[in-house]
Design a protein around this nucleic acid. Structure first.
Lengths: 256, 256
DNA sequence: ACCCCAAACCTGTCTATACAACTAGTCTAG
DNA sequence: CTAGACTAGTTGTATAGACAGGTTTGGGGT
């Protein structure tokens, strides 16, 4: 009766929106292999008829698949499963803890210093603070499965998280504490990466020889309104770390 | 009569969709400073009344602004201009030529080798080719304002661009030729960056000493259906190059 | 002075419908 | 056999209206 794909029945009483249920069902079809790369997704009309929803609702589900990069639409032809596999969500701000867990490694942290201090020049500029404004300063060594990966130096305006010094255990996840204790949710970050050589002090902490290649990251994290919330400078072992990026070549410019 | 922002009148006979005209008008207000960071964009209802379009059309315009990252919506409150400045489109696949021109530098290229060859193991895997399939192999040194920036080694399946060896001048832009001569448009790339040290041979070509820090990039470029079209391995001077990234922390996971 | 509730306002979701524009294939007239 | 017209299928754009669910504000009662 229907085309190749049979969609899951909808739960009309659920709090989960219909378009989201449809999206989930389609994603499951892609994941399971029922819908393969390059194959056509059920058309808006077919989804609409099969599930008894309006075409606009079906359309919304399909649109969200395209936004994810899982599919692409061609006018007059249909919507097709993109050939690109998403092993993980690219270009996500992940805390070290989250990143290691995603890869199945056991994250560990050794705090070097955890204090309230005046903002240094770099941090003050990145966070739009005056020089005498207080920040939480946190220096840590990060380990994966007991071997050192990198050094991190975070600075967070004290104004955003009063009492942090007492409430936070510097061996645990910073982002989780910010979210749970202060309702601070980081949604965006600008990061620059440079390649450099380990200094003697860095080498000692990272258990590599001086002059070994390292990544130098500088990251500014923002809240949803664009307010800067964290400035991080970090040094990572190049033999244990690499940067993975997905780049798009968009036709949609946003000015003129 | 209306709120703070007066929108441009619509041209109902234009081929440009209404929602796109509205989007353009709102973007112009942001660009000109009429709408500042954190300020509220006219509500769907107001746009709808002011321009005489349906609410869904106004909504579509606002949605597209949010997709661009220029604004964010909050249920029950409104839609607000994001505080984040987009100096440039982040995370775009740019050719070396385009990238240098964007920064106001003069790109120059010295070809080292430009041949048809059997796919090497790395390229064959990345491009999903058999080992005996022919590829265009192109090695170049890239300069900005006469000083060397990096080495690139591109491989492209010959099947995609027959006659490339005769048609392409290896001192010019590869992507431009692919687009103009063959209608090949790269829309996506996966890139990994590692940090390493320059070998003696690399040092000679890049005019740095052996052991200097360098970036090692590996890039696979894809066409819109997900077919891989180019495999590039490149080495860039770390003192002249850094990676800039914008990361998001999305709440929309795409499996379960 | 304080608290609670209603009203106003906003975005999120959903329906039903219409027409435009594009694709791919079929049929027909020459 | 070919060029062109036609058709069925698909996405793109647009309208009008409805209700749900969240935020903010201000008024009224205690």
């Amino acid at each position: 009766m229907w085309g190749k794909v049979v969609l899951e029945a909808l739960d009309r009483h659920s709090v989960v929106p219909l378009y989201y249920q449809i999206r989930r069902s389609l994603l499951e079809s892609v994941r399971s292999g029922a819908l393969k790369s390059g194959e056509m997704i059920p058309s808006e009309e077919e989804i609409s008829a099969q599930l008894g929803v309006s075409r606009m609702t079906a359309r919304q589900a399909i649109k969200s698949l395209c936004d994810l990069g899982v599919a692409y639409s061609q006018r007059g032809k249909g919507t097709f499963v993109s050939g690109i596999k998403f092993e993980k969500n690219f270009r996500q701000v992940l805390s070290f803890t989250e990143e290691m867990r995603n890869r199945g490694w056991r994250p560990r942290t050794k705090p070097l210093a955890f204090t309230v201090a005046n903002a240094d020049a770099e941090a003050a500029e990145a966070l739009h603070l005056s020089r005498n404004e207080k920040v939480i300063s946190l220096r840590r060594v990060r380990y994966a499965n007991s071997s050192p990966m990198g050094l991190e130096w975070s600075r967070i305006p004290l104004r955003l998280c009063p009492g942090m010094l007492e409430k936070f255990d510097p061996r645990t996840s910073l982002y989780q504490t910010l979210a749970e204790q202060y309702g601070i949710h980081i949604v965006l970050a600008d990061e620059t990466a440079e390649a450099g050589l380990a200094s003697a002090a860095e080498g000692r902490l990272l258990e590599i020889s001086k002059g070994s290649p390292v990544f130098l990251f500088t990251r500014v994290c923002y809240l949803h309104e664009g307010r800067p919330a964290e400035y991080v400078r970090s040094t990572y072992r190049a033999d244990r770390y690499k940067i993975v990026n997905r780049l798009t070549r968009s036709k949609s410019e946003w000015r003129n």
